[in-house]
Amino acid sequence: MLAAIAVSQSATDPLAGLVLGDVPRPEPRPGWSTVRVVSSSLNMHDLWTLRGVGHPPERLPMILGCDAAGYDEDGNEVLVYPVIADPDAGQGDETLDPGRALLSEQHNGAFAEFLSVPTRNLIPKPACLTFDEAACLPVAWGTAYRMLFTQAQITAGDRVLVQGAGGGVASAAIKLAVAAGAVVYTTSRSADKRAQALSWGARAAVPTGERLPERVDAVIETVGEATWSHSLKSLRPGGTVVVAGATSGMNPPADLGRIFYLQQRVLGSTGCTRGELVALLRLLDATGVRPAIDRTLPLDEIHQGFQLMIDGRLAGKLVIHPSGPQQSGTSR
């Protein structure tokens, strides 16, 4: 089968380590299921792997791809929960399992025609979602859901700042927070991305670092150093910053005086549980909210997709069809 494989890593030329090649189809194993992948989607995690961030080189070669939707061995339409972990190791929260692994970290990922995962990781795909839409959800939308509803515990009427409107998690957080009845503010250097955020229901979208009309109850932070100071200054006393990434740098100034004097809370968040992903699917079914898809590409054009991500030219998710352009990405 055809697959997109990371064979080497480079901080300056990440795509040099990405190759397309024929690999054997996964062998059946007890407790695991094989999925014929209809749709997958790109995530920054894939790019970090190619850059050598958080992925030891001794784990290469590795098929990339964290998200997948397709058919199980019985022809059922399924969505793949991407965290392979022991749900009991984290007191019922598999994201707290020290041995957890996202697809493509320790197990081959979804940029291939077939994927093998624990049977527990298969979730029925709702009929209301196309394969393309479903494949956008597990990593980016699952992360945003946990940040908003589990960690920040937002409710209708809360004021929420989402930093970096162009990112996959950020765009999901904007749409989900609006759907939950929150007042959403967001930032971006790009006028086009600010306009898009307004079309999704954000009350205001301002240039990065610009003062907001009011202080917020919660900040969704995935940018890091470039926005950290603005996040804390935008937060009300007693408010919460939820951090699930730092694309601009991992070491912002702590500003501990502001944090303790204003009793602000800083919470980390990683991925989502299987239960949270199921809850997200129910929310989308109830509200009609859907992920924004910038474009779809066949697997043999995946290098082009990664370059668009590197250049910051995506406005939404980029979906990959591992079996070629004949796959429509819609339910049969």
Rank of each mutant, 00 (worst) to 15 (best):
F111H: 08
W48F: 00
S39Q: 05
E77H: 12
H107Y: 11
P87L: 09
D22A: 14
A110K: 00
V38L: 02
V37K: 02
P56K: 11
E94W: 06
S41L: 15
E105G: 14
P28Q: 06
V80K: 07
G65E: 08
F111G: 04
P30Q: 10
V80G: 06
P56E: 02
T143C: 13
P124V: 12
D46Q: 00
P82V: 03
E113L: 14
N76W: 07
I84F: 05
S39H: 11
R120M: 06
A140N: 09
R59W: 10
A127I: 12
V38H: 08
V19N: 07
R100S: 08
I84S: 02
P26Q: 04
A68P: 00
S104I: 07
M62A: 01
N108H: 14
L42F: 04
P56T: 03
M44Q: 02
D88W: 07
T34G: 12
P82T: 00
L103H: 01
T95L: 05
W48L: 12
T95V: 04
Y71T: 10
L47D: 00
A101I: 00
G142W: 13
H55G: 01
E27D: 12
P57R: 13
V37D: 01
G65S: 03
A144Q: 11
A140L: 13
C66L: 11
E113S: 12
S41A: 15
D67E: 03
D86V: 08
A127D: 10
V35W: 03
E94F: 09
T119Y: 03
Y145T: 13
